[in-house]
Design a binder for these strands. Structure first.
Length: 832
DNA sequence: ACCGCCGGGTGCC
DNA sequence: ACCGCCGGGTGCC
């Protein structure tokens, strides 16, 4: 500690040798001797090798039962990489002090650690503090030591695997850093007339605050004027010249509160001292200023400004950096701006051209191109959208961002802090918040005190952040009213008429079902036969959607009352299986099915293969797939006439449409004609219906994605991201299985919802609609429910309206009256 | 009948 | 291993 103090004084003196102005005009870390001195002083947690403690994590030693080495409580353990381990090239062996193997580091953590150890980014020491709780594994505390410059790489690597280095308390405290900032920052400002979208009250407040940040020359936090000097109360530094003001800040509102709109309003409204940006008017081709009182002076002002700015590539242009997938969101048809998208291979790299724009949009990836002309321009403003994406200051991308020259600087971010205080440095450095934009000062004055648990350090950090940040959450209120209200939602039912042939099929099934259920009603056995009743209803519901939904499940076969019906069902199933497009495999020969037959248990094999199985096992023969009894004379094959027209025994599966599909496609085509940016959710309870829908969507050239319950979490996230993207090539339609996924899903890119078939429980429909009609939805939401006229669906809707769940009918412990009413429901459904 | 729920099999790297 | 994780069986009270 003593040595540290000496070193600090040395650095203080050496700093003295440079003029005071240096602190504000040059990056101190460009000066080697000084930054070295500070760095040497910075760490009193160094070991003999000059390594510093990065932090600790708790890991797990596994596989104890396979090895003889034992460890006592509090004992140190050795860690050894086993790059040639047969099972895992990332293996890390754990041994006790005698060198006897104790076990291995659990493989997920081993993977992260192997990367770090193999690259010598850190050394790791293990200590077993708590004793073994079981015979199989035990916890171990792992301390990571290394060179300061490798620290963030190590932290980042561990973070990739979900491990967070513990660097000392106060974690929760800075998690809440941004939560104390929920205040209105008084005052509202109307946007310039060129902003076509009216601002909400909280957006006008943000605009007022942002204009003030750009126009008012307030001292940065911790600076005050003392007599003739400007004095920093944290560093005790004083200077004669006024410290450079931060013209900008962090707009950290929650997603959906309109950060982008507010920023566009800022660009148009606050060109100069609260005056609007002179906007090029596309219609008349002349320059005009939108604020009425400025009209006469506009051309003159423009000339002056253009002349002033034409020197040394100063410009009135703003550059906005955003993540790739959010590119288009900034383009608003109603704002007449010279906007240039600086990306793609043919981008115009002329600084003169770029400087002549109002807004240049680019991405973080394009920006870090070394020869970027964007770095040769002195921008009026630079805006980082989703600014938290550049939080690691060591990346090329971050350096490119920091090197942008601009008078005013803004960060938009819904989640300003991701992991730790460290993330903040990048934000403050970008804003050039003196003196903390210099890493060493940030470390000494803020970061280290905070990570060491110094309350005052945290207090200072909070003050710092508070001065430059505006944050409201979706639950914030302004004048007792919520910040945002959802766009309108309208729900309509579209009746679908079945075609003559569909009606014929439907009535056939309906009469059959009505007969069966009528019998149950007469016998008073409806509730006892409920599964059958549901199955009948299910078949009718499927009829309403598409005939091909009916014939696939094995249980259908079970429903058949007569051998002839069973045979029909099995043939139908065989037809569907072979038509499904996938290369159906025989489970006996594991090859494509030749001479297909279907068993009574509804599994498909090659006839020779399954015949051999039955021949060998005789009376005890069982289906290789489900172990049901099978007999040679019960195998069902296609009737000869169908075999002939089939493609060598496999029908190519002729796709057919249905009335409901026609109704949907009609709507989708109409929407596409009206506005090709409209996106829709197409929802069904039958995933096979979704599959059937894929064909006409493809035929009509719709781009679509699909989300159903069979997909992994990772795949779902990918699909949702694709769908939510606003690029022109992104999918316009999501095929969605009604019950897929949890409540957290966000489909706000869609403004139209098509519910293809009614659900028993209307709440599941509502939940689905709410995934699209939620915070972040910018358009009016239209919900269309397709209901087949004169069908079980219509009756389902009637029952829905009474808010009754059919399942309760049969199984609920309801009293007799209610039971009677449920039975009446079923009668109503079947028109009995 | 895409879902959650249950209980059995299972287990370092 | 009194876990987590996996896959199979299962069913709406």
């Amino acid at each position: 500690m003593c040595a540290g103090g000496m070193a600090f004084r040395r650095s203080w003196f050496s700093w003295d040798r440079y003029s005071e102005v240096d602190l504000f005009t040059e990056r101190l870390d460009q000066n080697n001797s000084l930054s070295q001195a500070i760095r040497a002083a910075a760490s009193d947690e160094m070991d003999a090798d000059g390594n510093v403690l990065f932090g600790q994590i708790q890991g797990t030693v596994v596989g104890l039962k396979y090895y003889s080495g034992v460890v006592n409580q509090g004992e140190m353990v050795g860690l050894e990489r086993e790059p040639h381990n047969l099972y895992d090239r990332n293996a890390i062996m754990v041994a006790n002090i005698y060198g006897s193997q104790v076990g291995h580091i659990r493989k997920d953590l081993a993977e992260a650690m192997a990367y770090i150890l193999d690259r010598k980014l850190a050394k790791v020491e293990g200590v077993v503090h708590s004793s073994t709780k079981n015979r199989f594994s035990m916890p171990v505390i792992l301390s990571f030591w290394g060179k300061e410059e490798n620290k963030s790489a190590v932290i980042q690597r561990l973070a990739c695997y979900g491990y967070k280095l513990i660097t000392g308390g106060l974690k929760n405290a800075f998690d809440n850093l941004f939560e104390g900032l929920l205040e209105s920052k008084d005052g509202e400002k109307e946007a310039a007339e060129s902003v076509a979208t009216p601002l909400l009250p909280h957006q006008r407040q943000a605009l007022s605050w942002m204009c003030a940040r750009e126009n008012e020359c307030v001292l940065p936090p911790f600076w005050e004027k003392r007599g003739e000097l400007y004095y920093n109360t944290l560093t005790c530094f004083s200077a004669k010249e006024i410290p450079e003001r931060v013209l900008g800040g962090i707009l950290a509102d929650d997603m959906g509160l309109g950060k982008t709109l507010t920023t566009i309003a800022l660009i148009l409204t606050n060109f100069h001292d609260g005056k609007p940006l002179p906007v090029y008017n596309r219609v008349s081709g002349t320059l005009s200023i939108q604020a009425p009182d400025e009209q006469s002076s506009a051309p003159f002002l423009m000339l002056c400004l253009l002349r002033v700015y034409s020197r040394s590539m100063h410009t009135r242009a703003c550059v906005c950096v955003c993540p790739q997938d959010q590119f288009e969101e900034h383009l608003r048809a109603d704002v007449k701006l010279r906007v240039y998208m600086y990306h793609g291979p043919d981008r115009n790299r002329s600084t003169k051209f770029l400087s002549s724009q109002d807004v240049v949009l680019t991405t973080y990836n394009v920006l870090h191109d070394v020869s970027s002309p964007l770095h040769d321009i002195n921008w009026l403003r630079v805006v980082l959208d989703e600014g938290h994406v550049v939080r690691n200051p060591n990346t090329q991308m971050s350096k490119a961002v920091l090197d942008l020259k601009a008078k005013r600087r803004w960060i938009l971010s819904g989640t300003p802090i991701q992991n730790s205080v460290k993330d903040l440095w990048m934000l403050l450095a970008f804003l050039r918040l003196k003196p903390f934009d210099v890493r060493e000062w940030w470390n000494r004055v803020i970061q280290r005190p905070v990570t060491q648990g110094d309350r005052a350090g945290l207090q200072n950090l909070q003050t710092l952040v508070k001065c430059i940040t505006l944050r409201r959450t979706k639950t914030s209120e302004v004048n007792g009213r919520p910040l945002v209200t959802l766009p309108e939602k309208s729900v309509c039912v579209e009746q679908v008429e079945l075609s003559a042939s569909e009606r014929e099929e439907y009535e056939l099934a309906h009469n059959e079902g009505r007969h069966t259920i009528g019998r149950y009603v007469a016998e008073g056995t409806v509730l006892r036969n409920y599964a059958d009743v549901l199955a009948i209803l299910m078949r009718l519901r499927q009829h309403c959607c598409h005939p091909d939904l009916l014939s696939k499940t094995a249980s259908d076969a079970g429903l058949a009352a007569t051998p002839a019906e069973l045979r029909e069902h099995l043939i139908e199933k065989l037809r569907v299986v072979l038509a499904s497009g996938s290369d159906e495999e025989c489970s006996v020969c594991l090859d494509s099915v030749r001479l297909p037959v279907i068993t009574h248990c509804a599994h498909v094999y090659c006839r020779p293969c399954i015949a051999q199985v039955i021949g060998t096992e005789q009376e005890s023969a069982r289906c290789p797939l489900c172990r049901s009894d099978i007999k040679i004379n019960e195998l069902v094959e296609f009737p000869q006439e169908e075999m002939a027209e089939g493609n060598g025994g496999r029908s190519p599966g002729k796709w057919r449409t249905s009335s409901k599909i026609q109704a949907l496609i009609g709507n989708l085509l109409r929407l596409r004609r009206e506005d090709s940016t409209i996106k829709s959710l197409v929802v069904s309870q039958f995933t096979r219906f979704l599959t059937i829908l894929e064909t006409p969507l493809r035929e009509h050239g719709f781009r679509f994605v699909r989300l159903d319950g069979t997909m992994s979490q990772k795949k779902r996230a990918q699909v949702i991201q694709d769908f939510q993207s606003v690029t022109p090539s992104s999918p316009a339609i999501m095929l969605l299985s009604l019950k897929a996924g949890g409540v957290g899903l966000n489909f706000t890119a869609a403004s139209h919802v098509f519910l293809m078939d009614p659900a028993w429980n209307p709440a599941t429909e509502e939940q689905c609609i709410d995934r699209c009609h939620r915070l972040g939805q910018k358009r009016k939401v239209f919900v269309t429910k397709f209901i087949v006229k004169d069908s079980v669906e219509e009756n389902m809707v009637k029952i829905q309206r009474q808010k009754q769940e059919l399942v309760e009918v049969a199984f609920g412990s309801v009293d007799n009256d209610r039971k009677t009413s449920r039975i009446n429901d079923i009668k109503a459904l079947m028109k009995l």
